[in-house]
Structure formats: C-alpha cells, structure tokens
Amino acid sequence: AEKTGIVNVSSSLNVREGASTSSKVIGSLSGNTKVTIVGEEGAFYKIEYKGSHGYVAKEYIKDIKDE
C-alpha cells in the first residue's frame, strides 16, 4: 500500500540513511518534489530514493495520498 506525498520545505529536505536525525544524510530533495512512501518509522517516512530507500522527517511531507 504505497502512498505519495509532496516535500513541503522552502529550500531542501535531507534524505537520511535511517529513521533518525543522527543518521547519515545520503541526499536531499527540493520543495514540491513528489515522493513515494513505502513505510514509516517513528517520526520518519521511508521513501523510494535513487533506486533504493531513504528516510525523511514526516513533518516536512504534505498531501499524503494513497496510490
């Protein structure tokens, strides 16, 4: 049951290796980017990222929809 969301930041949002603010940053997404959410862990969504997965803070994702 995948969902999509939109990155809701003015600059960019860090994509992390794990569901923690201390996890390594593996990339970033600019505002209004559409993401595919494959799961959630605590305050983070697990998303599809560059052929693999990454984690982003839930508070910066809006317009969550079921695909």
Rank of each mutant, 00 (worst) to 15 (best):
A1M: 11
A1Y: 11
A1L: 13
E2H: 10
K3I: 11
K3W: 07
T4D: 04
T4Y: 06
G5Q: 03
G5V: 04
G5S: 03
G5A: 05
I6G: 03
V7F: 02
V7R: 02
V7Q: 02
N8S: 12
N8L: 07
N8Q: 10
N8M: 13
N8D: 09
V9R: 07
V9D: 07
V9N: 08
S10T: 11
S11D: 15
S11W: 09
S11C: 08
S11N: 15
S12F: 11
S12M: 12
S12H: 15
S12C: 08
S12R: 15
S12P: 09
L13P: 06
L13W: 03
L13E: 03
L13D: 02
L13C: 09
N14V: 15
N14L: 11
N14A: 11
N14E: 15
N14D: 13
V15L: 03
V15D: 00
V15W: 02
V15I: 07
R16Y: 14
R16T: 13
R16C: 05
R16G: 03
R16V: 07
E17Y: 08
E17D: 15
G18T: 15
G18I: 08
G18Y: 14
G18Q: 10
G18H: 14
A19H: 05
A19F: 04
S20R: 07
S20M: 06
S20E: 06
S20Y: 14
S20L: 07
S20G: 07
T21G: 15
T21H: 11
T21R: 15
T21D: 15
S22F: 08
S22H: 13
S22I: 15
S22V: 11
S22N: 11
S22K: 13
S23Q: 04
S23E: 04
S23V: 03
S23A: 12
S23T: 08
S23W: 03
K24V: 09
K24N: 11
K24P: 15
K24Q: 11
K24W: 05
K24L: 09
K24C: 06
V25H: 04
I26Y: 02
I26D: 00
I26F: 03
I26H: 01
I26K: 04
G27M: 05
G27N: 02
G27K: 01
G27I: 03
G27S: 02
S28C: 06
S28E: 12
S28L: 15
S28Y: 11
S28K: 15
S28M: 14
S28A: 13
S28G: 06
S28I: 12
S28V: 14
L29C: 03
L29E: 01
L29Y: 03
L29V: 10
L29T: 01
S30K: 15
S30C: 07
N32K: 08
N32Y: 09
N32W: 09
T33D: 10
T33V: 13
T33E: 09
T33Y: 07
T33P: 02
K34A: 07
K34M: 09
K34F: 10
V35P: 01
V35S: 01
T36N: 10
T36D: 05
T36W: 13
T36M: 13
T36P: 03
I37D: 00
I37V: 05
I37Q: 00
I37M: 03
I37L: 04
I37W: 02
I37A: 01
V38M: 08
V38W: 09
V38A: 05
G39I: 02
G39P: 00
E40W: 07
E40F: 06
E40G: 04
E40H: 06
E40R: 04
E41V: 12
E41T: 09
E41H: 10
E41D: 12
G42E: 05
G42T: 04
G42M: 05
G42N: 09
G42P: 03
A43Q: 12
F44K: 01
F44T: 03
F44L: 02
F44M: 04
F44R: 01
Y45I: 03
Y45Q: 01
Y45W: 13
Y45V: 03
Y45A: 02
Y45F: 10
K46N: 03
K46Y: 08
I47S: 00
I47H: 00
I47N: 00
I47G: 00
E48P: 10
E48A: 10
E48S: 11
Y49C: 03
Y49Q: 01
Y49D: 01
Y49N: 01
Y49M: 03
K50A: 12
G51W: 08
G51M: 09
G51C: 07
S52F: 12
S52L: 12
S52R: 15
S52V: 12
H53V: 13
H53M: 09
H53A: 13
G54S: 03
Y55C: 00
Y55I: 00
Y55H: 02
Y55T: 00
Y55L: 01
V56Y: 00
V56F: 01
V56P: 00
V56H: 00
V56N: 00
V56K: 00
V56E: 00
A57P: 15
A57D: 12
A57T: 06
K58G: 02
K58Y: 02
E59F: 08
Y60S: 10
Y60E: 06
Y60H: 13
Y60M: 10
I61F: 05
I61V: 12
I61M: 05
I61G: 01
I61N: 01
I61T: 02
I61D: 01
K62H: 13
K62S: 11
D63S: 09
D63E: 15
D63R: 08
D63V: 15
I64R: 04
I64E: 08
I64F: 09
K65R: 13
K65P: 10
K65Q: 13
K65I: 13
D66K: 07
D66G: 10
D66Q: 15
D66F: 07
D66Y: 07
D66L: 11
D66V: 08
E67N: 15
E67Q: 15
